[in-house]
Write a protein that binds this DNA or RNA. Structure first.
Length: 215
DNA sequence: CGCCAGGGCCATA
DNA sequence: TATGGCCATGGC
């Protein structure tokens, strides 16, 4: 059982989840901040409140106080309001232009995003993958939990796991998007703490495991 | 009523 | 490097 076979099995069972729900790259960036340790349904409420000003210019025009009021349903609103300002200020350096950002290297974009207060590894990689269509794998708590549960012994540390998994999968942004989405869907739909339940598509992998996360 | 969600920052050792 | 406290709402 390799990571690719795991992906194939999840894909066969759940299909293409069609992430990430958003109309523009900027909305994806905003959603990536708002969803930090927060249920997506709460994020949707916050996004709905922002609807009239869900553009970089619209967000920058809001006071910090007003912005935090609007995103209140997403929780951690005082922090996230500042984070959104930081991210939007960074985006301004690209003139809010997707094509301009596409001229920049993946490594440069990633280091710039990670330098922002409020953008950690998972948020940065979500933005790179879903907003900028770059082939970076998003590692979240679900991924580590799922791999541990099926006996794959994921390495400690975000980067170590990301590089190992990326090396074991075809370097495709579309596949990476589906991988992350499928891991989340699987984790939500299947038993949380038990090894695996009967209807789970990974029901037998407790025994086989993923051989050291190799391709 | 308690638990937790598609994290990240910061202080501490 | 690795914990622990903190941020906060809403659904179940």
């Amino acid at each position: 059982m390799t990571p690719l076979q795991l992906y194939a099995r999840l894909y066969r069972h759940y299909g293409d989840p069609g992430w990430w729900p958003a109309d523009t790259p900027y909305e994806i960036m905003v959603g990536a901040i708002l969803t930090q340790n927060t249920n997506w349904s709460n994020v949707e409420k916050a996004l709905a409140n922002l609807k009239q000003q869900l553009t970089p210019q619209g967000i920058q025009a809001l006071s910090l106080e007003r912005l935090s009021q609007l995103i209140k349903p997403a929780g951690f609103f005082n922090q996230k309001a500042r984070y959104l300002k930081n991210l939007t200020a960074w985006w301004a350096a690209y003139d809010y232009c997707w094509e301009t950002a596409q001229k920049q290297s993946l490594e440069k974009l990633r280091s710039e995003l990670l330098a922002l207060k409020g953008v950690g590894p998972e948020t940065a990689d979500s933005i790179l993958l879903y907003a900028f269509n770059r082939p970076v794998l998003v590692i979240d708590a679900y991924t580590r939990r799922l791999l541990s549960r099926i006996g794959a012994h994921p390495p400690a540390g975000y980067e170590a796991l990301r590089l190992r998994l990326e090396a074991a999968l075809p370097a495709s942004a579309e596949l990476f998007k589906r991988w992350h989405a499928l891991v989340v869907i699987q984790s939500k739909n299947c038993c949380r703490r038990q090894p695996l339940c009967h209807s789970c598509p990974l029901q037998d992998t407790c025994r086989t495991g993923i051989a050291e996360l190799q391709a």
